[in-house]
């Protein structure tokens, strides 16, 4: 949590959010609201590494209420009323999820780069 705190300013993302793997810009600074919720996200495994069913508890997200607030972002097909979020350029993911009923998107702090 202390590591996350350095990334937060007035409850929002202090820095611009980028993909962890490529230079794709995901979210401008100050556009996401920090939420310390924990959610089960599948690992960002490479195809060659096999097993896709593994999930882990991921805590700490940038919450965004309008998908068009994002600079660049990809959305998966719908699975149980939600969409997983991926990098729009290199497609690494899931870096978070989008709830279709509330229209809220959540980007995991631990799965993106801040600078």
């Amino acid at each position: 949590m202390s590591a996350d705190e350095a990334l937060i300013a007035e409850g929002k993302n202090k820095f611009t959010v980028y993909c962890s793997r490529c230079p794709s810009k995901i979210l401008n600074s100050g556009m996401g609201v920090y939420t310390d919720m924990t959610y089960n996200l599948p690992y960002m495994h490479h195809k060659a590494d096999g097993d896709s069913t593994n999930v882990e508890d991921v805590k700490g997200y940038w919450q965004v209420s309008d998908i068009y607030t994002f600079e660049n972002l990809g959305f998966s097909n719908t699975v149980e009323n939600m969409k997983y979020l991926i990098c729009a350029d290199c497609e690494i993911g899931p870096i978070g999820w989008h709830d279709l009923s509330t229209k809220q998107s959540y980007v995991a702090l631990s799965r993106v780069k801040h600078s």
């Binding site: 096999g50 660049n72 290199c90 497609e91």
Partner: peptide, 24 residues
């Protein structure tokens, strides 16, 4: 794909497929 030739190709994402992308 603007910055690389290939996608990351995550097992999980390839299985469910991609619906759309937002670009600014």
């Amino acid at each position: 794909f603007r910055f690389s030739e290939d996608a990351f190709n995550s097992t999980f994402i390839s299985t469910i497929g991609i619906d759309f992308k937002i670009r600014t």
